[in-house]
């Protein structure tokens, strides 16, 4: 079992993801340079947070045309697991692996801090180590995390259980006050219809051990290994 962390010019959470997998999980992990066209040998590919290509034009817009993204699309097509975190989520939206788009936070402010998330679906490769309805704490750090999709897409996501996480208060109530960025339906993370591609704005890799403030993020990575191990 091996994880790959894509490194775009401007990625800045690649090392965090690398350490979360290597030290948190104890699973082999390698960086994947954005210029490569080969992602053979990996079981899970992480698109990390940061500001790929400076976020010029739109967050993730240029990164999706990186040589590596063709390989990531093929990898996902074959059923490989792809997790996009923050900027990586934005790249997945731009390249169409996940539906919707990100708008500027409704506060117009960069939001940085811990949020509470309600687990909406614990039966995916990325959430099976959690329980449905559980509240986890993870940090966010973004200026464009205001998830938008048309009402039909939102309906489809909900009906198919493709919403993985929603912003909530400490008791698990999904409220407007607990929404840090204006995301529709408080959506913080979603997956594709097949369940092998997921994107989330909060940063599990920044919360993989208690000394970092929370170890809840490790459960996301642990879910992946338990899914791969049981396959």
């Amino acid at each position: 079992m091996k994880f790959g962390i894509v490194v775009f010019p401007g990625s800045n959470c690649d090392a965090d993801a690398y350490y979360a997998v290597r030290d948190g999980l104890g699973v082999p992990v390698e960086y994947i340079w954005h210029g490569t066209r080969d992602v053979g040998g990996f079981d899970c590919i992480v698109l990390p947070g940061g500001f790929a290509y400076g976020d010029y034009l739109r967050a993730g817009a240029i990164a999706r045309f990186s040589p590596v993204m063709d390989a990531v699309l093929e990898f996902a097509e074959r059923g490989g697991l792809v997790l996009g975190i923050c900027n990586g989520f934005q790249v997945l939206l731009e390249c169409g692996l996940l539906p919707g788009a990100m708008l500027r936070n409704d506060s117009l402010q960069f939001r940085c801090g811990y949020v509470n998330l309600k687990v909406e679906n614990a039966a995916t490769p990325f959430t099976n180590a959690l329980e449905r309805g559980r509240v986890i704490r993870l940090p966010i750090a973004h200026g464009e995390g205001n998830y938008y999709a048309d009402s039909q897409t939102l309906g489809n996501l909900q009906a198919a259980g493709r919403v993985l996480f929603r912003y909530c208060d400490g008791e698990g109530n999904v409220t407007a006050e607990a929404n840090p960025n204006g995301s529709l339906l408080n959506i913080a993370g979603i997956c594709n219809s097949r369940g092998n591609v997921a994107g989330m704005m909060p940063h599990p890799e920044r919360a993989y051990q208690r000394i970092l403030g929370s170890a809840d993020g490790l459960e996301i990575f642990r879910s992946v290994t338990s899914f791969l191990g049981g396959r």
Partner: peptide
């Protein structure tokens, strides 16, 4: 393809 995102 690039300059605008048709979703938004």
């Amino acid at each position: 393809r690039l300059l605008a995102n048709p979703v938004i």
